[in-house]
């Protein structure tokens, strides 16, 4: 029985997981809220309980998301080949610098910093970009049947 965990041969699929080789983002998504729950486990104090109750599966469709994509699309034109790219000038530039970023900063950035602190730093860029997640109220998970 050979089940290898190393990188696959084809090279077009990014491989990970299996015995600690995953990044933190993968691990959090894999194990949180998953697995067998029996009502015999004692309540333990947790660090970063708010972070642990972030539900990564909540679908986020917000103004922030829309602005991010509007920005990405305009940036695309700016750097893209053709498709009107040469017509776009400083205006687009200004939009990129002062757009969605400024409006979502503040509370979210603080939250990200806190995540980073609690979990010992971000190991993937993506985790910082995915800050606008909704939080669920705290709840106790230890005694759920």
């Amino acid at each position: 029985m050979t089940v290898a965990t190393q990188t696959g041969g084809g090279g077009h699929v990014d491989r990970g997981g299996g015995g600690g080789s995953s990044g933190l983002a993968d691990v959090v998504e894999l194990i949180l809220d998953k697995g067998l729950v029996i009502d015999v486990f004692v309540r333990v104090s947790l660090v970063g309980i708010e972070i642990l109750t972030i539900d990564a599966r909540v679908v986020v469709a917000s103004v922030d998301t829309f602005l991010r994509f509007a920005e990405a699309t305009n940036r695309l034109d700016l750097y893209g080949k053709g498709k009107g790219g040469k017509d776009l000038t400083e205006l687009t530039q200004g939009m990129m610098e002062g757009g969605a970023k400024g409006k979502t900063a503040g509370a979210l950035d603080a939250a990200v910093d806190k995540v980073g602190e609690l979990l010992g730093g971000n190991n993937r860029e993506e985790e910082q970009e995915e800050a606008p997640r909704r939080r669920r109220p705290q709840r106790t998970r230890e005694r759920e049947a």
């Binding site: 998953k34 697995g35 333990v44 104090s45 979990l119």
Partner: peptide
């Protein structure tokens, strides 16, 4: 308290290292 990055990674590493060898029923962290 539990719940640091290392705790999460250790839990996953133990469970998935076992899974690579044999059938395992993972417990929910923690």
């Amino acid at each position: 308290p539990l719940g640091t990055r290392d705790d999460l990674v250790a839990h996953e590493a133990v469970v998935d290292s076992v899974a690579a060898h044999t059938t395992v029923l993972p417990m929910r962290f923690p």
